[in-house]
């Protein structure tokens, strides 16, 4: 089973990744990004032999500046299933610390408090 990888972000952030063979999607605001993410998530490939359907994208990278603006409810819905993995990466403006904060949040969810603070 083969999956694709996508990246969502503004133009200057995604152009370089497009050359690597990722599917690049342009989004300039959080609303646009949310819409794109929902579309990407619902995109499915149907296996002709077995008739099973699976998500087309296994990983969707999104630039941090967009990721941190996405509402909590949307984020929960988007990240609920096993695939795709929605991973924020630092954009051209450099890191915002969102990635590390996200890990802290996971620890909090799992343990009950952020023990690495």
């Amino acid at each position: 089973m083969k999956y694709s990888i996508a990246i969502v972000g503004n133009k200057e952030a995604i152009l370089g990744f497009k050359a690597l063979g990722l599917k690049a999607f342009n989004a300039n605001s959080a609303e646009e990004a949310t819409k794109v993410l929902y579309e990407l998530k619902s995109e499915e490939i149907i296996n002709e032999k077995t008739g099973e359907s699976k998500p087309a994208y296994a990983i969707i990278f999104i630039t941090e500046d967009l990721a941190m603006e996405i509402s909590k409810d949307d984020y929960k819905k988007l990240s609920a299933a096993a695939l795709p993995a929605i991973i924020p990466v630092p954009g051209p403006k450099g890191t915002t610390g969102y990635g590390i904060r996200r890990i802290g949040k996971m620890v909090e969810q799992a343990v009950g408090s952020d023990i690495f603070k």
Binding site: K2, K18, L22
Partner: peptide
Amino acid sequence: LESALLYPSAKVDLSVTT
């Protein structure tokens, strides 16, 4: 720049195991 990167020949595939 855009036209140079418009049609990439590189392809990435991902296989997933659980």
